[in-house]
């Protein structure tokens, strides 16, 4: 009984410890506010395969999805190069999420926040190759926007 109480007490002590310590890296703001998370892929060689490229938008920022509702907004577009034995067949974009600008009566945008993924269908050769391309996007926070930017994409691909 006593021992049970002691373990309960220790577990209780650990709760605030777990809750208060942030494990992993603290959020870092990047110059363009978007980074490529995927840096290496392993794919079955010689036949069409779908892989996901992961990107991350800095906390507090958003970029337009691939299909923004307003025609004036700049969509996020991933352009990949076919070359070096890698053949890109097509891309499929994650759906955006709703983001209301400027309070209850503001315009509702379709955006990516945090991590988002683009599925890429491609054929890779056996062995090591590199997938290259660029992500074109335009970032904003709640009150201001940045000019459109292009993020270079370079991912090591191993065909097995």
């Amino acid at each position: 009984m006593k021992l049970g109480l002691i373990w309960f007490w220790v577990a209780l002590c650990c709760v605030p410890l777990r809750a208060q310590i942030q494990f992993g890296e603290a959020p870092v703001a990047h110059k363009g506010h978007v980074v490529l998370v995927s840096d290496a892929l392993e794919v079955m060689a010689g036949e069409p395969q779908v892989v996901e490229l992961r990107f991350r938008v800095d906390d507090g920022f958003h970029i337009n999805s691939h299909a923004p509702k307003d025609g004036l907004l700049i969509p996020t577009v991933l352009r990949l190069d076919s070359g070096g034995g890698v053949k890109v067949v097509g891309e499929q974009y994650q759906a955006g999420s709703a983001f209301r600008l400027g309070g209850a009566s503001g315009e509702v945008l379709d955006v990516y926040q945090g991590e988002f993924r683009v599925s890429v269908r491609m054929v890779v050769p056996k062995g090591a190759s590199t997938l290259t391309g660029a992500l074109h996007y335009q970032a904003c926070d709640n009150a201001s926007c940045f000019p459109p930017r292009t993020l270079p994409v370079m991912v090591a691909v191993t065909g097995e």
């Binding site: 004036l72 907004l73 600008l101 400027g102 503001g106 315009e107 335009q138 201001s144 926007c145």
Partner: peptide
């Protein structure tokens, strides 16, 4: 301003 800028249009 710019046409792509939501806060500008606000």
């Amino acid at each position: 301003w710019a046409t792509y800028c939501g806060p500008c249009k606000l």
